[in-house]
Design a protein around this nucleic acid. Sequence first.
DNA 1: TATATATGCAATTATTTGGTTGCGCAAATA
DNA 2: TATTTGCGCAACCAAATAATTGCATATATA
Lengths: 113, 113
Amino acid sequence: MKTRRDVFQAIADPTRRAILTLIALQSLTPNAIAEQFDSSRQAISKHIQILAECQLVSQQTIGREIYYQLNPAKMKEVSDWLAPFQKLWEDRYNRLDNVLSNLKNKENGKSEN
Amino acid sequence: MKTRRDVFQAIADPTRRAILTLIALQSLTPNAIAEQFDSSRQAISKHIQILAECQLVSQQTIGREIYYQLNPAKMKEVSDWLAPFQKLWEDRYNRLDNVLSNLKNKENGKSEN
DNA sequence: TATATATGCAATTATTTGGTTGCGCAAATA
DNA sequence: TATTTGCGCAACCAAATAATTGCATATATA
């Protein structure tokens, strides 16, 4: 819980993903979030802290309550990493097939694509 | 390294993400992949194994060599999870602003957007 | 002011993770 | 056939992680 702290590590945990979904449309306090899970408030609070550290959520204090909200811009980082792969599953022309046939014809002298 | 084995946990590691990028366009053997990193062949092989377990990569044996290739369909699972959030950062009308003002006007009697 | 509530922080523990080392096996090669 | 090469598997280890428990602090409320 010390060193690696990036968006990808943050969303690796299913509870944290659920939290993100939960607060996507409405800010919530730690207690309100914890109520939605079986885990203890402290456990949830730790997850929130991790999400906050990598800026996936931001907070707003109102009195003694702290409302946590999603930071969509940070979510976009995952999307951005994913973007280059996107055409691999979208293209009707799937490059993977070509890679495969290249491999199979390897000994014949490779014809890239 | 035993129980939880899903796509999100798999891409949490930067080395594994790099491997995915590396083999996105061309299948490679474990040795060829390991050459691109400082880590040992065995370390890389473990990463590959994790990627294979959650089906982010598939393999094809040719002689004694094993070519690993990206499975774009599995990558799409991440994209699918991300999709609902996407409009939050794409919309020029950002819902987050509304949540915030809702909070600020809370004591006035909430008007849920 | 005294008490209850909302929350963060620190210490502790069990589990998971990432990496190394050593070994075995099957396929290529001399 | 003997040797080299490419890989996977198992055991082991240090570091990171997730969760619990206990405590401190600030803000409401009686």
